[in-house]
Each structure stands twice: as C-alpha cells, then as structure tokens.
Design a protein around this nucleic acid. Structure first.
Length: 468
RNA sequence: GACCCCGUCGUCUAGCCUGGCCAAGGACGCGACCCUUUCAAGGUCGAGAUCGCGGGUUCGAAUCCCGCCGGGGUCACCA
C-alpha cells in the first residue's frame, strides 16, 4: 500500500510555526516515500472557522514550498476535503453506531456537565463524563427527543486495552476504562473533532498520521472509534511540541509565532524550513545542517525524530536564515527589493551577505539611499580638510563605474595621510555619505551611491562645516 | 487529581535500541584573537553538560532495571 499522509489544520487563525513544522514533516515523509500528502481543512467549529484563515494557511504552506497532492483547492478522489462538506458521512457513521448500540443520546446541558466536572474535581476524581445518559430507558429518550429537548450523541467507550504503536514514541498502552464516553455529535448536529478526524483518516486512506504530541491522548479514542466502525485505524507518529524560551507552549507572548509574521520580518522560506526541520529532527551524523527541501526530504526518517519538546530559538533561526540569504542568487534577491534601480541592485549584491533578513537588507539599502541630515552629522573639526580631499579625488578621478574605481578614488584622497588621518577621513566620509559612523566600507558606499550622489553628499556635508 | 509523554552544554541536538571506541561529539549563542577605515560578515581558538536526582545490575552505565523529582499533554457539545 502506498504512503498517504495528511496535514489537517483548522482555519481558526494563521499558520503557527508548530503546525508549519507538522506540515513540513508530513511533506518530507510523503516525498521521501513517494507517497501523497493530503490537505484537509478541519472546520467543524462553525464559530471560529473562517474562509480567510483557510486561504491564509494555504498561502503560507505554498510560500514554504510545501505542496499537497489532494486538498480543497485541487480536489482528489477522497474529497471533499473540508469537514464542513462531509457532514452526511459523519451523520451516517453515527446512525450506524447508534443502531449497533455503540452510541447514545446525552441530554446533559453544558452547564450540568460543567457542574459535574467541578464536583468530580473537588472530590479528587478525574473530571470525565460519568456516562449517566447511557442507561436512559429507550422510551424516555424517545419522549425527550420528541419534546424537542437538545441532545448530543456520545460514543460508548469500550473498556478494553488500546495499544498505540507510535513511530516516534514507541509502544504506548491506554485503558479504555480511563477514558470517558466522548461526544460524537454536538446538539446542533455538527461532528466533534474526534469523530471527524478518526472517520476522515480512515475514509481518506491515510496510512500514517503525523501530528503534534498534544493529540497523543486522543489517539486511543480515535482508534476505538475507527474499530467500532469496522475499520483498521491508521498508524501514528506524534511529534514533540515546540515551546517558548520559558518552557511553556509557544504563544503570542514569545514573539513571532506565525509563519506570516516571520515572512513579514524578512525570513526566507528556505531559512524557516531549514530551522524548523532541525527542531525535533536531526540529520545523520556528520551532515551539514544547512539544507534545502530536496536534501531534507532525501534524508528524512521518523526514527531520527526527537521525543522531547524543543524551545523555539529566534537567534538560531536568524543564523539559518542568513545562511540561505547568502546563498540566494542575486536575481531572486532583487525580486524582493524596491525600487528596482541601479542603487538597489548594487547595494543588494554587496550587502546581502552581512544581514540576517530581507527586511534588514531593505533597511540597510534605505539608509544608504536617504539623504543624511546636515544638522545631525556631528562632524569633527578635522573633517573639513578630509572631505575636501575626498571631493578633490572624486573630481580628479571622475570615473566611478566599479568598486575598483571607488577604491582608487579613496586611495587618491588618502594618498599622503598617516593611518590616523586615514581613519579620520574614512569616518568623515561615512558620516557625509550616510550620516552615521558605522556601516559598509566607504569604497562600497561610493560605488553603491554613484559618482553624482556621492559628490553631492560630500558637498552638502562641507556646507555644514563652514556654518556650524 | 487520573491517564499519558518527556528530562544530555544557556539553546537545538548526536550518542541510548545493539553497555566499554564518550573523562560526552556537532550546531546556534557567548568570549578572545585574526582580518579591517567603522559596524557587521568571515576565519581561528576557547569557555560551556558531575548525561534531572537516588538506588540497583555489571569488571564497566548517558546507555539496562527500579524509585523519586521536575516539565508538558489530555481529561471541552475547541481542534
């Protein structure tokens, strides 16, 4: 049987880095085994699901370079791929279970359930549903339903032992008797997560479910449900969660947690993917850690997935991003930059190896482009003569068509200066050209700015010298 | 509270299954130095982990066994 895995986000927000990593591992596994990746939208929560979020998630996945073989946008034989469009299937399954005595109506109101929960908690008992509606007489059930009383449908949890053969955690045993009769159908007729997920995984022919650790405790419920429906559940692999720096699950207060935020911060998809792949998975010993998607998929195996949670480290992500930024061909780099003029091209070509992100590069270019403010230049007393020499060199050595020309102009300006004098010249020049003492080498700046602009800025700075 | 998972440098991890090659290797970060007209980048070197703790098995344990502690997940008519 060929491999089929799935990524099943719920469209209640934009794509989180944790979910992005789950999607990545699924993609990697599918690619590695020549199998299919199915994208399924878990939109059974009518309150919180929004089409905009679905679109955003799809866009983020594409941006990361993770393509799927079947999904709501591309279709496929196992569709529809939105759970909101599969309601009849859930209803039919529940009817069958009902007919076989494996499910029952529950009339407990949310308030009553909450009270029951609190009560059990207070008595030191596990806060699970006690199954009180399971033994309601058939006649009473008929009457109350007939009277229009709201009811949910619950699954009769078998009291058997359930063993999960997890591909990353190993063998994990649960007792059905520790689990309660969970809800299959809500009072409004919509399916619960456990019903929808378990049924779809079986009906869509998923062979292996790769998902976050937070679903591990749901697994025995879903397996029991699949079996009650007469199907063999898929295999499972549970990925450790990603935490924030304080060990708590990653959330907004840890900074950028969504893919979109990282993209906006100038992170490249290659950088994010590389970093995420190494959060919880490690390549075979001795491998260079900087890798692209094809390399990653060639190397990926579940037995090298870590079992313990990892902390998200923005510094390490920044480093991986820089590695990919350095390797990015100038043509691709320029596609992100604007305006598309000579200055941008020269600057991008020269500076992209020094920055961590696209926004840092954009900022660096913008800083060079913007005219320094005369008042804030703060030129030292010795600056004037230095700048005069630089202006002279710019005039005498007029040609500025390469970095070498810039080098020559500088050499000319500094030709009879001692090291200290050179230092003063360079500092004054950088101040005059970009308004701050730090930044790229002066020769680089000259070449990026071009002869005209450079001359003009030096002259402006000179004006500032005579009228302090 | 019950059930389940996890616990190696500050961080990501290798090693654990198949004990000795590990007085624990790599990467990020950090420090120093080199390069250098500045800041970065880059290069070199370095500091950094009694392998959560305590027992046990063994000639020998990060690796096997038991207990404990700590963190996390689930126990929703959320997913």
């Amino acid at each position: 049987m060929s491999v089929r895995v799935r990524f099943a986000p719920s469209p209640t927000g934009s794509l989180h880095v944790g979910n992005a990593r789950t999607a990545l591992f699924n993609w990697l596994f599918a690619r590695k085994h020549g199998g299919g990746l199915i994208l399924r939208i878990e939109d059974t929560d009518r309150e919180r699901s929004r089409p905009e979020w679905e679109a955003a998630i799809l866009e983020d996945l594409r941006w990361l370079g993770l393509h799927w073989d079947e999904g709501p946008d591309v279709g496929g034989d196992a569709g529809p791929y939105r759970q909101s469009e599969r309601l009849e299937a859930y209803q039919a399954a529940v009817d069958r279970l009902m007919g076989e005595g494996k499910a029952y109506f529950c009339f407990c109101s949310p308030e009553a359930l909450e009270a029951q929960r609190q009560d059990r908690l207070a008595r030191g008992l596990p806060p699970r549903y006690d199954g009180r509606c399971r033994s309601l007489p058939a006649e009473e059930v008929r009457q109350r339903r007939g009277a229009g009383e709201a009811s949910a449908v619950r699954f009769v949890m078998p009291r058997e032992r359930i063993t999960v053969h997890d591909h990353v955690k190993g063998e994990i045993r649960f007792l059905g008797s520790d689990l309660d009769d969970f809800v299959l159908l809500r009072a409004d007729g919509s399916p619960s997560y456990n019903l929808a997920a378990a049924l779809d995984d079986c009906r869509m022919g998923i062979t292996l479910v790769i998902r976050g650790d937070d679903h591990l405790a749901n697994t025995p419920r879903q397996m029991a449900l699949a079996r009650a429906l007469g199907w063999e559940p898929p295999q499972f692999a549970h990925l450790p969660l990603i935490h924030g720096s304080d060990g708590a699950p990653l959330s907004k207060r840890h900074g950028a947690v969504s893919v979109a935020e990282h993209r906006a911060a100038g992170i490249l998809p290659e950088g994010l993917v590389n970093y995420l792949a190494l959060l919880g998975w490690s390549p075979p010993a001795g491998r260079d850690e900087v890798m692209d998607l094809p390399t990653l998929s060639g190397l990926f195996t579940l037995d090298r997935v870590s079992r313990s949670p990892a902390k998200f480290d923005p510094e390490r992500l920044a480093w991986f991003n820089r590695q990919h930024l350095r390797r990015l061909p100038t043509g691709q780099l320029l596609a992100f930059m604007e305006p598309a003029d000579d200055l941008t091209e020269r600057a991008a070509r020269l500076l992209h190896k020094e920055v961590d992100s696209l926004v840092a590069l954009k900022r660096a270019i913008a800083e060079i482009r913007s005219e320094p403010e005369l008042e804030s230049l703060d030129l030292p007393a010795t600056a004037e003569s230095a700048l005069l020499q630089l202006r002279g060199a710019l005039v005498v050595q007029g040609r500025l068509e390469s970095e070498e020309d810039a080098q020559r102009i500088l050499a000319h300006a500094a030709r009879d200066l001692a090291p200290d004098g050179r230092r003063v010249l360079m500092r004054a020049a950088r101040l005059a050209l970009i308004g701050k003492p730090d930044g790229p080498p002066v020769a680089t700046l000259l070449w990026i700015l071009g002869a005209e602009r450079a001359k003009q800025r030096v002259e402006n700075a000179l004006k500032g010298c005579v009228a302090p």
